[in-house]
Design a protein around this nucleic acid. Structure first.
Length: 580
DNA sequence: GCCGTTTTCGGCCCGACTGTTTTCAGTCG
């Protein structure tokens, strides 16, 4: 059982208990356990196989009871307690509470009063006017439920970050024209550079909130206004994306930014810490618990300072140990965009890119890089016009000539002779050894047979690693965000093998991929495997996608030293030659 | 159910908005 499945069971237990009216702190514990498990870099399965129950001890938020349930799930694939709860409460109730405006209390109430067990039954009841006569409900809430069900069925829940960025820019610019507005900062998961964003949260400061709110809800993309208050409003855009705005006074800016950036789990942990120190953190500032004594407010750093911590970068705020690390002074040194010295995954016209080698190299020089690796596809990827051995040999000569030209021009920049060689279904590489040995850098990727079972796929990639001919495993899980699930692969095993053969893993920065992801980065770092942050560019304009990779790497706690392409050309060549 | 600078019991983050209330509960983030 994967961590994500175990987390889902804990979330469902929390939801079921909540509908039953269970003890709220117990509910919180299960929900917290779900979040903790979800964010673990290493599989619980592996931890348990390695060290038994001891391997599961010391995970914050996992106590005796949840640990026992984890072990049960790892051993039997099931959790008895979870199944018993499901016997008492129909599984459809878990869907009902996802309807906006319907929480556990209301769900339990319609279940008890009308025998409603599923979303469809709730919809029928609302359509026939049965809901509005219930105590505590009315005509408005009945309509709200109907709309909530419709939205739930239609809504794409998560939007790729790259889709939300232009929206954030549009709103920022749009709000700028409101007189008296001071700060406009997109925060929330957007500011934490999460790969997908559920809602866009915009924090603003000004003296008078009304003109801001009035203007906000009139943005041309707004389809519907869900709520509009003095300090807080929510709209839905034509795309289905929800945008929240929060308006506060300037003196609260720092605390509000901290609060509004989240994550929720990070904030809960931070506020809990504050509470233990006799302080209270809210979006308005930090207060002494009894008297309303103002401690800080206008700078985010001051909020952390008030509880004895250094400022924590937004990308780390996921409650994955960053508070403890901050306290002990071992937060990772933030990887900078300027640390990146080159791009090791770039396509040209020879395969399925849109520009020539020279175009790509010039664009990379403009970005201040020292090198790029030209990694066109191999012949197995026919649709991309992949290169056979002869064409690759010709490209090698072309690169040599181009580099000679650069040398004559006394340019420091170099193009690396490289390939993105296909890992075939049987784990062999799609170019012969002879030609691969002539290259500076070999990226090896899977492009077919995505439906393979876990063991077969894992062995396939490991076989490629063991050839000693490759430097980097390209987009190691094959996922496309919101489009294609990752293929089944045991990344922990692959990474252990990669470590032995000095092979790096790619963090593919194409915003639809981000593959490996942030949690995998943590794992790679733990295993001592270098990460190559590359763009997989098919155009000169894709080179700038590097920014997504850098922030994803930050979310995975990577530092400059953990990233292969922060090396200078000379250092890089040393590492690349150490393969096998 | 978890956890400990108020330690093995007694706490557990904080506030806004809405609809139904006539003072607040439920929901949400």
């Amino acid at each position: 059982m994967e961590n994500s499945e175990i987390a889902r069971v804990f979330y469902e237990i929390a939801d079921l208990l909540e509908i039953q009216g269970g003890y709220r702190f117990r509910i919180r514990s299960y929900r917290n356990a779900g979040m903790v498990v979800e964010g673990l870099p290493e599989g619980l399965k592996n931890l348990f196989e390695k060290d038994g129950e001891d391997g599961l001890k010391g995970i914050p938020g996992i106590g005796e009871s949840t640990r026992a349930k984890i072990i049960e799930m790892l051993s039997t694939g099931k959790c008895k307690y979870h199944q018993e709860l499901l016997k008492e409460m129909p599984v459809g109730m878990l869907e009902i509470i996802k309807v906006s405006g319907v929480g556990p209390k209301k769900a339990a109430f319609v279940h008890k009063e009308l025998g409603i067990n599923t979303i469809d039954e709730l919809e029928k009841a609302a359509e026939s006017g049965l809901i509005q006569n219930l105590p505590g409900f009315g005509e408005v809430s009945e309509q709200k439920i109907l709309k909530g069900i419709k939205d739930l069925k239609a809504r794409t829940r998560q939007f790729k970050l790259s889709v939300v960025i232009p929206v954030a820019q549009s709103f920022t610019q749009y709000l700028r024209s409101v007189p008296g507005i001071i700060d406009i900062v997109p925060s929330g998961s957007f500011r934490r550079w999460k790969e997908t964003v559920g809602d866009l949260d915009i924090l603003t400061t000004c003296k008078d909130s009304r003109p801001v709110m009035d203007h906000f809800v009139k943005h041309p993309d707004v389809r519907e206004v869900l709520s509009k208050g003095e300090t807080k409003s929510t709209v839905v855009l034509a795309s289905g994306l929800h945008v929240d705005i929060r308006v506060l006074e300037k003196k609260s800016f720092g605390a509000a930014l901290q609060y509004f950036t989240g994550s929720k789990a990070h904030n809960v942990a931070l506020r809990d810490r504050a509470k233990r120190m006799g302080l209270k953190i809210s979006e308005y500032g930090v207060f002494k618990e009894r008297g309303e004594v103002w401690v800080v407010g206008n700078k985010e750093e001051d909020v952390y300072k008030a509880v004895g911590l250094p400022w924590i970068p937004p990308e780390l705020r996921e409650n994955r140990g960053e508070l403890e690390a901050a306290e002990e002074g071992r937060l990772p040194a933030q990887l900078q965009y300027s640390d990146i010295k080159g791009d090791l995954h770039v396509h040209t016209k020879e395969s399925d890119g849109a520009y020539t080698l020279e175009d790509m190299a010039e664009a990379a020089m403009k970005m201040g890089y020292e090198y790029i690796a030209v990694t066109d596809h191999s012949k197995a990827v026919g649709i991309a016009h992949g290169l056979d051995e002869a064409r690759l040999n010709a490209q090698i000569r072309m690169v040599d000539e181009y580099n000679d030209k650069l040398k004559r021009q006394r340019k420091k920049f170099r193009v690396l002779k490289a390939t993105e060689v296909d890992i075939r279904g049987d784990g062999t590489l799609d170019h012969p050894e002879g030609v691969l040995k002539k290259l500076d850098c070999v990226v090896a990727s899977v492009h077919s047979g995505f439906g393979m079972g876990m063991e077969e796929m894992t062995n396939r990639v490991i076989k490629a690693v063991r050839t000693g001919l490759i430097n980097i495993i390209g987009h190691p899980t094959g996922r496309l965000i919101n489009e294609r699930e990752p293929y089944q692969i045991d990344l922990e095993k692959v990474l252990s093998e990669a470590k032995k053969y000095n092979v790096a893993v790619e963090l593919n920065s194409y915003p639809d991929r981000l593959d490996v992801n942030d949690v995998h980065c943590l794992l790679a770092k733990q295993k001592g495997v270098l990460v190559a942050i590359s763009t997989d560019s098919h155009s000169i304009y894709h080179l700038e996608n590097m920014i997504y990779g850098v922030h994803t790497a930050r979310r995975g706690w990577l530092e400059k030293k953990d990233v292969l392409n922060t090396r200078s050309l000379k250092e890089l060549m040393k590492v690349l030659k150490g393969k096998g």
